[in-house]
């Protein structure tokens, strides 16, 4: 089943003087349980591609489907709601809230959804990621690798269908980076997510099912 699908999507920016085609006409899809990575030089359009899938910006042309539902043409508020439900973001500098402990980061999701907080579920997720004993620590007290694992836990916690990771290993050394990517790959399979990871480091793509190369706004399979 296709969890992510892009049909004839383009994105161009017009700054008044000249038009930049950040993303040329793209058709693309990711299946359930598939781990895809995108590599490419700086400025080639990787982040643009990822944020369009995540609904943070809308395509100039074409349509984005998430979990078989038209996403890119929803109103801003609806898109935010669907994003909260269906998409887990993992960002370069980690998307953790500095004043919440690892446990509270996850609890926040329950608070927003007005659900009961299930500590068992939290503990099993955290032990999956081997950060169980860190649940009462603040992000500032964690190492870079631990922080990214906590961020993965946060992204997985509300059980989204799609995981989008923009250079999740940029702040880590090679060993930690491999560890984090391995976890991402494992969780993608185990929990049947569709995961896209943008990275600079080609060695990390060993764990991926397919690798795409972005160059000047054109996406090609490697």
């Amino acid at each position: 089943m296709k969890l992510i699908e892009l049909k004839d999507v383009t994105k161009s920016f017009d700054d008044g003087r000249k038009k930049i085609e950040a993303l040329k006409t793209t058709n693309f899809s990711v299946e359930e349980g598939e781990f895809v990575s995108i590599i490419g030089p700086s400025g080639s359009g990787k982040s643009t591609f990822l944020t369009i899938i995540g609904g943070l910006q809308t395509p100039s042309k074409g349509k984005v489907y998430i979990n078989d539902e038209q996403f890119s043409e929803l109103a801003e508020k609806e898109r935010a709601k669907k994003r909260f439900r269906e998409i887990g973001f993992i960002l370069q500098a980690s998307n953790l809230i500095p004043f919440l402990t690892v446990k509270n980061q996850l609890q926040l999701v329950n608070k927003i959804n007005k659900e009961k907080f299930d500590i068992k579920q939290v503990e099993s997720l955290l032990s999956d990621l081997k950060i169980e004993e860190l649940q009462d620590k603040y992000p500032g007290d964690l190492s870079g690798g631990e922080r990214q694992r906590a961020a993965i836990a946060r992204a997985l916690y509300h059980d989204p269908s799609v995981i989008l990771a923009d250079e999740p290993t940029a702040s880590l050394d090679t060993d930690r980076a491999f560890e984090v990517v391995e976890i991402l790959a494992r969780e993608t399979k185990k929990k049947k997510k569709a995961t896209i990871m943008v990275t600079h480091d080609e060695r990390l793509t060993d764990y991926c099912d397919s690798v795409y190369i972005m160059k000047d706004g054109v996406l090609n399979k490697k």
């Binding site: 935010a80 709601k81 994003r83 909260f84 998409i87 887990g88 960002l91 809230i97 500095p98 927003i112």
Partner: peptide
């Protein structure tokens, strides 16, 4: 910037 991250995750401005 932190609030931006929260909004990127889909946490509403209302919340």
């Amino acid at each position: 910037s932190m609030l931006g991250v929260m909004k990127a995750q889909g946490i509403s401005s209302t919340y």
